[in-house]
Computed example of a mutant assay.
Amino acid sequence: MNWADAELLAYGSLLLDNKNVRISGQDVIRGTFSHRHAKLFDANTNQPYSPLNNLSEQQANFNIYNSLLSEFGVLGFEYGYSMASPNTLVVWEAQFGDFSNGAQVIIDQFISSAETKWEKMNGLLVLLPHGYEGQGPEHSSARPQRLLSLCSEDNMVVANLTTPANLFHLIRRQLAWEFRKPCFLLSPKSLLRHPSVISNFDDFTNSQFQEIIDDNVKSKKLIKKLILCTGKFYYDLDEYRQGNNIKDVAIVRIEQLSPFPKSKIEKILNTYSNAKKIIWAQEENQNMGYWSYISSFNLKNIELISRKRSSSPSTGFLKVHLKEQDELIKKIFN
Rank of each mutant, 00 (worst) to 15 (best):
R241S: 09
E178D: 15
N160G: 01
I246C: 05
K232V: 14
K224D: 11
F233E: 10
S219H: 13
L185H: 10
A176L: 12
L186P: 00
Q145L: 11
S190D: 13
S207H: 08
D203V: 02
V252H: 02
A165P: 04
I213A: 05
P164V: 01
V217C: 12
L170K: 08
D214G: 00
E255D: 09
D214P: 00
S258I: 02
I171V: 15
T163V: 07
K181V: 10
T230A: 15
S190G: 01
Y240P: 08
L167H: 09
F201P: 00
I246M: 05
A165W: 04
Q145Y: 10
K181D: 03
S152H: 15
F201C: 04
G231L: 06
D214L: 00
R172P: 04
P195R: 02
P164R: 07
C229K: 09
N155L: 12
N155K: 00
L192F: 07
L191C: 10
E153G: 10
K181G: 05
R180H: 10
H139W: 02
C229D: 09
T205E: 08
D214T: 04
S140P: 11
R253N: 15
K189V: 06
C183N: 04
L167Q: 07
S190Y: 12
L175A: 12
R253Y: 03
E239P: 02
H139P: 07
I212N: 03
V252C: 05
I212A: 03
G136M: 04
V252A: 03
Q242S: 14
N216A: 12
F209P: 02
P164M: 06
Y234S: 06
P137M: 08
L161D: 00
K232G: 11
D202W: 02
Q256L: 02
T205D: 05
S207M: 09
Q174A: 13
W177I: 04
Q242A: 10
L222T: 10
R180N: 09
K247C: 11
Q145S: 13
L161T: 01
P259C: 09
K220Y: 11
K221R: 13
F204W: 02
N206W: 06
K189L: 11
K221P: 00
T230Y: 06
I246Q: 10
L175E: 05
D238W: 06
V197A: 01
S190A: 11
L237Q: 08
L228K: 02
W177C: 03
V157W: 02
V252G: 04
I227Y: 09
P144T: 01
F184W: 12
L170D: 06
M156F: 15
P188T: 10
K181E: 05
R193D: 04
R253V: 15
Q174Y: 10
I212Q: 03
L170I: 08
S140L: 08
D248E: 14
R146L: 13
N200E: 13
L228G: 02
N216Y: 12
R146G: 04
P144I: 03
L167A: 03
V217I: 15
F204V: 05
S199T: 05
V197Q: 03
V157M: 07
N166C: 00
H139M: 04
Q210W: 01
R180D: 07
